[in-house]
Protein backbone atom coordinates (compact mmCIF):
# COMPACT_ATOMS: atom_id res chain seq x y z
CA UNK A 1 0.00 0.00 0.00
CA UNK A 2 3.03 2.25 0.27
CA UNK A 3 2.71 3.01 -3.43
CA UNK A 4 -0.56 4.83 -2.86
CA UNK A 5 0.89 7.02 -0.12
CA UNK A 6 3.96 8.46 -1.87
CA UNK A 7 4.35 12.23 -1.83
CA UNK A 8 3.29 12.28 -5.44
CA UNK A 9 0.05 10.49 -4.66
CA UNK A 10 -0.58 12.86 -1.77
CA UNK A 11 -0.27 15.73 -4.25
CA UNK A 12 -2.75 13.88 -6.48
CA UNK A 13 -5.26 13.57 -3.62
CA UNK A 14 -4.76 17.20 -2.66
CA UNK A 15 -5.51 18.26 -6.22
CA UNK A 16 -9.05 16.91 -5.78
CA UNK A 17 -9.34 19.55 -3.07
CA UNK A 18 -8.07 22.15 -5.55
CA UNK A 19 -10.83 21.23 -7.99
CA UNK A 20 -13.53 21.29 -5.31
CA UNK A 21 -12.23 24.62 -4.00
CA UNK A 22 -12.30 26.04 -7.52
CA UNK A 23 -15.93 24.97 -7.89
CA UNK A 24 -16.87 26.28 -4.44
CA UNK A 25 -15.44 29.73 -5.21
CA UNK A 26 -16.27 29.95 -8.91
CA UNK A 27 -19.95 28.98 -8.70
CA UNK A 28 -21.08 31.85 -6.42
CA UNK A 29 -18.75 34.39 -8.07
CA UNK A 30 -19.97 33.42 -11.55
CA UNK A 31 -23.55 33.65 -10.33
CA UNK A 32 -22.77 37.13 -9.02
CA UNK A 33 -21.24 38.15 -12.35
CA UNK A 34 -24.28 36.72 -14.12
CA UNK A 35 -26.71 38.51 -11.85
CA UNK A 36 -24.92 41.81 -12.34
CA UNK A 37 -24.82 41.25 -16.11
CA UNK A 38 -28.53 40.41 -16.24
CA UNK A 39 -29.41 43.48 -14.17
CA UNK A 40 -27.24 45.64 -16.40
CA UNK A 41 -28.79 44.17 -19.55
CA UNK A 42 -32.28 45.01 -18.23
CA UNK A 43 -31.32 48.55 -17.24
CA UNK A 44 -33.25 51.43 -18.77
CA UNK A 45 -30.05 53.46 -18.99
CA UNK A 46 -28.91 52.49 -22.51
CA UNK A 47 -25.07 52.43 -22.12
CA UNK A 48 -25.38 50.16 -19.07
CA UNK A 49 -27.67 47.87 -21.00
CA UNK A 50 -25.17 47.75 -23.89
CA UNK A 51 -22.40 46.91 -21.44
CA UNK A 52 -24.36 43.98 -19.97
CA UNK A 53 -25.51 42.69 -23.34
CA UNK A 54 -22.07 43.16 -24.87
CA UNK A 55 -20.38 41.20 -22.10
CA UNK A 56 -22.86 38.33 -22.45
CA UNK A 57 -22.63 38.25 -26.23
CA UNK A 58 -18.84 38.51 -26.53
CA UNK A 59 -17.90 35.96 -23.89
CA UNK A 60 -20.55 33.49 -25.07
CA UNK A 61 -19.33 33.84 -28.62
CA UNK A 62 -15.62 33.18 -28.06
CA UNK A 63 -14.48 29.54 -27.79
CA UNK A 64 -13.64 28.62 -24.18
CA UNK A 65 -10.14 27.38 -24.90
CA UNK A 66 -9.19 30.44 -26.92
CA UNK A 67 -10.56 32.57 -24.12
CA UNK A 68 -8.67 30.63 -21.45
CA UNK A 69 -5.34 30.65 -23.24
CA UNK A 70 -5.48 34.26 -24.34
CA UNK A 71 -7.31 35.83 -21.47
CA UNK A 72 -5.27 34.59 -18.52
CA UNK A 73 -1.99 35.86 -19.96
CA UNK A 74 -3.66 39.11 -21.00
CA UNK A 75 -5.27 39.59 -17.59
CA UNK A 76 -1.97 38.93 -15.83
CA UNK A 77 -0.17 41.44 -18.06
CA UNK A 78 -2.99 43.96 -17.58
CA UNK A 79 -2.58 43.82 -13.78
CA UNK A 80 1.19 44.13 -14.09
CA UNK A 81 0.84 47.02 -16.50
CA UNK A 82 -1.41 48.94 -14.08
CA UNK A 83 1.04 48.33 -11.22
CA UNK A 84 3.88 49.34 -13.52
CA UNK A 85 2.20 52.66 -14.33
CA UNK A 86 1.54 53.34 -10.65
CA UNK A 87 4.81 52.20 -9.09
CA UNK A 88 7.41 53.06 -11.71
CA UNK A 89 6.34 56.34 -13.34
CA UNK A 90 9.89 57.25 -14.37
CA UNK A 91 10.55 54.05 -16.35
CA UNK A 92 11.70 54.98 -19.84
CA UNK A 93 12.00 51.62 -21.62
CA UNK A 94 9.18 50.18 -23.70
CA UNK A 95 7.03 47.50 -22.07
CA UNK A 96 7.22 45.25 -25.10
CA UNK A 97 10.73 44.40 -26.22
CA UNK A 98 10.37 41.94 -29.08
CA UNK A 99 8.35 39.10 -27.58
CA UNK A 100 9.36 39.95 -24.01
CA UNK A 101 6.87 41.64 -21.72
CA UNK A 102 9.02 43.77 -19.42
CA UNK A 103 7.77 45.67 -16.39
CA UNK A 104 9.86 46.97 -13.50
CA UNK A 105 10.68 44.53 -10.68
CA UNK A 106 8.32 46.20 -8.21
CA UNK A 107 5.39 45.73 -10.58
CA UNK A 108 5.83 41.97 -10.99
CA UNK A 109 2.81 40.03 -9.86
CA UNK A 110 3.42 38.15 -7.69
CA UNK A 111 6.80 39.72 -6.91
CA UNK A 112 9.65 37.76 -8.44
CA UNK A 113 11.01 36.84 -5.02
CA UNK A 114 7.70 35.69 -3.52
CA UNK A 115 7.45 32.13 -2.27
CA UNK A 116 6.25 29.38 -4.57
CA UNK A 117 2.89 29.04 -2.81
CA UNK A 118 2.15 32.71 -3.49
CA UNK A 119 2.70 32.10 -7.19
CA UNK A 120 0.46 29.06 -7.07
CA UNK A 121 -2.28 30.89 -5.19
CA UNK A 122 -2.10 33.78 -7.62
CA UNK A 123 -2.35 31.40 -10.58
CA UNK A 124 -5.30 29.71 -8.95
CA UNK A 125 -7.09 33.02 -8.34
CA UNK A 126 -6.50 34.05 -11.96
CA UNK A 127 -8.07 30.73 -12.97
CA UNK A 128 -11.05 31.36 -10.69
CA UNK A 129 -11.51 34.84 -12.15
CA UNK A 130 -11.33 33.53 -15.72
CA UNK A 131 -13.77 30.71 -15.04
CA UNK A 132 -16.10 33.19 -13.33
CA UNK A 133 -16.04 35.63 -16.23
CA UNK A 134 -16.76 32.86 -18.76
CA UNK A 135 -19.48 31.16 -16.77
CA UNK A 136 -20.85 34.48 -15.53
CA UNK A 137 -21.76 35.36 -19.11
CA UNK A 138 -23.72 32.16 -19.54
CA UNK A 139 -25.38 32.60 -16.15
CA UNK A 140 -26.19 36.19 -17.12
CA UNK A 141 -28.01 35.01 -20.20
CA UNK A 142 -29.96 32.42 -18.21
CA UNK A 143 -30.95 34.93 -15.52
CA UNK A 144 -31.86 37.57 -18.12
CA UNK A 145 -34.28 35.06 -19.67
CA UNK A 146 -35.59 33.99 -16.28
CA UNK A 147 -36.34 37.58 -15.28
CA UNK A 148 -38.40 37.99 -18.42
CA UNK A 149 -40.23 34.70 -17.82
CA UNK A 150 -41.87 35.90 -14.59
CA UNK A 151 -45.52 36.60 -15.54
CA UNK A 152 -46.12 40.26 -16.29
CA UNK A 153 -49.26 40.18 -14.09
CA UNK A 154 -47.10 39.68 -10.99
CA UNK A 155 -45.25 42.92 -11.62
CA UNK A 156 -48.42 44.80 -12.52
CA UNK A 157 -49.95 43.70 -9.24
CA UNK A 158 -46.87 44.94 -7.39
CA UNK A 159 -47.17 48.30 -9.13
CA UNK A 160 -50.86 48.40 -8.24
CA UNK A 161 -49.85 48.00 -4.58
CA UNK A 162 -47.69 51.08 -4.97
CA UNK A 163 -44.24 49.46 -5.09
CA UNK A 164 -41.65 51.36 -7.06
CA UNK A 165 -39.38 49.83 -9.68
CA UNK A 166 -36.65 48.81 -7.22
CA UNK A 167 -39.09 47.29 -4.73
CA UNK A 168 -40.98 45.24 -7.29
CA UNK A 169 -37.63 44.00 -8.68
CA UNK A 170 -36.21 42.79 -5.37
CA UNK A 171 -39.45 41.67 -3.69
CA UNK A 172 -41.46 40.17 -6.56
CA UNK A 173 -39.25 39.50 -9.58
CA UNK A 174 -36.08 38.09 -7.98
CA UNK A 175 -37.74 35.58 -5.63
CA UNK A 176 -39.88 34.22 -8.45
CA UNK A 177 -37.32 34.06 -11.22
CA UNK A 178 -35.15 31.30 -9.68
CA UNK A 179 -37.57 28.58 -10.63
CA UNK A 180 -37.22 29.61 -14.29
CA UNK A 181 -33.46 29.99 -14.00
CA UNK A 182 -32.67 26.75 -12.22
CA UNK A 183 -32.83 24.34 -15.19
CA UNK A 184 -30.40 26.54 -17.10
CA UNK A 185 -28.20 27.12 -14.06
CA UNK A 186 -28.06 23.41 -13.23
CA UNK A 187 -26.86 22.73 -16.78
CA UNK A 188 -24.18 25.36 -16.29
CA UNK A 189 -23.10 23.75 -13.03
CA UNK A 190 -22.71 20.40 -14.78
CA UNK A 191 -20.70 22.00 -17.58
CA UNK A 192 -18.57 23.82 -15.01
CA UNK A 193 -17.77 20.54 -13.23
CA UNK A 194 -16.68 19.03 -16.50
CA UNK A 195 -14.70 22.13 -17.49
CA UNK A 196 -12.39 21.91 -14.46
CA UNK A 197 -9.74 19.90 -16.38
CA UNK A 198 -9.11 23.16 -18.26
CA UNK A 199 -7.31 24.19 -15.06
CA UNK A 200 -4.27 22.38 -16.38
CA UNK A 201 -4.26 24.68 -19.41
CA UNK A 202 -3.97 27.54 -16.96
CA UNK A 203 -0.89 26.04 -15.34
CA UNK A 204 -2.64 24.83 -12.19
CA UNK A 205 -1.62 21.27 -11.35
CA UNK A 206 -5.02 19.64 -11.17
CA UNK A 207 -6.23 16.04 -11.04
CA UNK A 208 -5.75 15.49 -14.77
CA UNK A 209 -2.10 16.61 -14.60
CA UNK A 210 -1.34 14.27 -11.71
CA UNK A 211 -3.27 11.36 -13.23
CA UNK A 212 -1.20 11.74 -16.39
CA UNK A 213 2.04 12.12 -14.45
CA UNK A 214 1.36 9.15 -12.14
CA UNK A 215 -0.01 6.93 -14.88
CA UNK A 216 2.88 7.41 -17.31
CA UNK A 217 5.25 4.44 -17.43
CA UNK A 218 8.15 4.53 -14.96
CA UNK A 219 11.49 2.80 -15.22
CA UNK A 220 13.17 1.36 -12.14
CA UNK A 221 16.01 3.89 -12.22
CA UNK A 222 13.83 6.83 -11.29
CA UNK A 223 11.29 5.43 -8.85
CA UNK A 224 10.88 2.75 -6.19
CA UNK A 225 7.70 1.60 -7.90
CA UNK A 226 8.35 0.97 -11.61
CA UNK A 227 5.30 0.21 -13.71
CA UNK A 228 4.05 0.28 -17.28
CA UNK A 229 1.50 2.61 -18.80
CA UNK A 230 -1.21 2.88 -16.13
CA UNK A 231 -2.84 6.04 -17.37
CA UNK A 232 -5.99 4.12 -18.25
CA UNK A 233 -6.56 3.21 -14.59
CA UNK A 234 -5.88 6.69 -13.29
CA UNK A 235 -8.22 8.20 -15.85
CA UNK A 236 -10.83 5.57 -14.97
CA UNK A 237 -10.61 6.82 -11.37
CA UNK A 238 -11.22 10.35 -12.63
CA UNK A 239 -14.21 9.11 -14.61
CA UNK A 240 -15.72 7.60 -11.47
CA UNK A 241 -15.02 10.82 -9.56
CA UNK A 242 -16.74 13.00 -12.13
CA UNK A 243 -19.71 10.63 -12.52
CA UNK A 244 -20.29 10.41 -8.77
CA UNK A 245 -19.95 14.15 -8.43
CA UNK A 246 -22.44 14.97 -11.18
CA UNK A 247 -24.80 12.29 -9.85
CA UNK A 248 -24.79 13.85 -6.36
CA UNK A 249 -25.26 17.31 -7.92
CA UNK A 250 -28.23 15.98 -9.84
CA UNK A 251 -29.85 14.78 -6.60
CA UNK A 252 -29.23 18.03 -4.75
CA UNK A 253 -30.48 20.16 -7.63
CA UNK A 254 -33.74 18.23 -7.95
CA UNK A 255 -34.35 18.88 -4.23
CA UNK A 256 -33.68 22.57 -4.70
CA UNK A 257 -36.07 22.57 -7.65
CA UNK A 258 -38.82 20.99 -5.56
CA UNK A 259 -38.26 23.64 -2.89
CA UNK A 260 -38.36 26.53 -5.37
CA UNK A 261 -41.45 25.25 -7.16
CA UNK A 262 -43.48 25.35 -3.97
CA UNK A 263 -46.41 27.73 -4.35
CA UNK A 264 -45.37 28.92 -7.82
CA UNK A 265 -47.76 29.48 -10.67
CA UNK A 266 -46.00 26.91 -12.84
CA UNK A 267 -47.04 23.40 -13.87
CA UNK A 268 -44.61 22.01 -11.28
CA UNK A 269 -46.10 24.18 -8.54
CA UNK A 270 -49.61 23.23 -9.61
CA UNK A 271 -48.75 19.52 -9.43
CA UNK A 272 -47.32 19.98 -5.92
CA UNK A 273 -50.49 21.82 -4.82
CA UNK A 274 -52.73 19.00 -6.06
CA UNK A 275 -50.57 16.29 -4.47
CA UNK A 276 -50.63 17.99 -1.08
Amino acid sequence: MCYLTTGKHMAFYASFGTVLLLLAITAPVALGFGFAAAMAARARFAPLSWLGKGYIAIVRGVPDIAFFLFFVIALDQFFEWIRHEVKCPDWDQPIRQGSDFVVCQAAKLPLGNAAQWVHETYGFLLAVLTFSIVFGAFAGNVLFGAMRAVPRGQLETAEAYGMNHRQSFWRILVPQMWVYALPGLSNLWMVLIKATPLLFLLGVEDIVYWAKELGGSKTARFTDYPHGDWRMWYFAALLVFYLVFTWVSEKVLSRVMARLTLGQATTGGEAQRKAA
Binding site: F79, I82, R83, L109, P110, L111, G112, N113, A114, A115
Partner: peptide, 21 residues
Amino acid sequence: GTAALAMVAGAAFAESHSVVR
Protein backbone atom coordinates in the same frame (compact mmCIF):
# COMPACT_ATOMS: atom_id res chain seq x y z
CA GLY B 1 -11.69 45.86 -7.26
CA THR B 2 -9.92 42.62 -8.01
CA ALA B 3 -6.98 44.45 -9.48
CA ALA B 4 -6.74 46.63 -6.38
CA LEU B 5 -6.94 43.56 -4.15
CA ALA B 6 -4.21 41.85 -6.14
CA MET B 7 -1.98 44.90 -5.73
CA VAL B 8 -2.44 45.04 -1.99
CA ALA B 9 -1.79 41.30 -1.75
CA GLY B 10 1.30 41.65 -3.94
CA ALA B 11 2.68 44.44 -1.79
CA ALA B 12 2.10 42.42 1.38
CA PHE B 13 4.24 39.56 0.06
CA ALA B 14 7.22 41.78 -0.73
CA GLU B 15 10.41 40.44 0.78
CA SER B 16 13.98 41.59 0.50
CA HIS B 17 15.76 38.40 -0.64
CA SER B 18 15.97 37.74 -4.33
CA VAL B 19 14.65 34.48 -5.74
CA VAL B 20 15.32 33.07 -9.18
CA ARG B 21 12.53 30.89 -10.49
